[in-house]
Design a protein around this nucleic acid. Structure first.
Lengths: 136, 136
DNA sequence: CGTCAACATAGAGAAATGTCGAAACAAGAG
DNA sequence: CTCTTGTTTCGACATTTCTCTATGTTGACG
């Protein structure tokens, strides 16, 4: 469900509205922690795409509940998903999530076109165009 | 300076080491706030690339010191930079920062090749390959 | 049914973060 | 020089986040 929020316009296309910024911030915040970033990388770099929790936990100097908590945040951000098989739980990267996010950050030509459409974004009074006068 | 940390291997190429994950987490954490994300988008979507603080502040229901604080965090993350011209201060997006970050998230074929080189990443004992036995 | 192992959840405390008002700093105007 | 405007810095406080220990849940195995 988070994928829909990160799909279309691009960050450099037009100023984000508050609602969309909030959704996106949740995803970036999930990646704003070294432990979660390592977990995500550990999962995304797997070919089969499946990593057992019992494999990730001993890679950190953290307790097992802490790792479980971080995995939960990554899952709530829509970056990974999991399934229980017998005793063990396996995590994998949600297929298009990272690429969608990457496309959102890329300042591609599509964004430039969209930017021109949006045009002037001056919402308040102030020195917008005639700023050169202040720097002789 | 943060660009060097986000340039080379790719998140899905191989598991991140602790040091690199810490550097990257600082950048993602800077984008993990709705206000900062809107500020960054507001700056990055400008053609000239320069946005005056006096133009950004009234777009939020926040005090001016708070906006200044968020801009400082974005600048420390290496995403934007600023310069004072007369009374006003102008911010712009650091040229390759967003695209570098996007490339780091993209799960491209280069990463697949690098992943094969790294090979087996099993660091502990556990059910790695023979997991099918647990699910009849 | 009882026991054990693997994960998840709940609650608590320490640390980090977001926000504000007050004050300091910078630069142009009178 | 003084005054005004724009911006940053400084403390202070409320909220969130990170981590732990303790407990609950699920499934395998006798």
């Amino acid at each position: 469900m988070d994928q829909d929020a990160t799909c279309c316009p691009g960050l450099a296309a037009a100023p984000l509205d508050d609602e969309r910024a909030t959704e996106l911030a949740r995803v970036f915040k999930a990646m704003g922690d070294p432990v979660r970033l390592r977990l995500l990388s550990m999962i995304a770099s797997r070919e089969g795409g499946e990593v057992c929790v019992c494999e990730m936990t001993p890679a950190f100097d953290l307790s097992q509940p802490t790792i479980s908590h971080h995995l939960k945040l990554l899952r709530q951000a829509g970056l990974i998903d999991c399934e229980r098989r017998g005793t063990w739980v396996y995590y994998w990267a949600v297929p298009g999530a990272l690429d969608t996010l990457a496309g959102f950050l890329t300042t591609k030509q599509t964004d430039l076109a969209a930017r021109r459409t949006t045009g002037a974004t001056r919402q308040t009074a102030g020195p917008t165009a005639q700023t050169a006068g202040a720097t002789p």
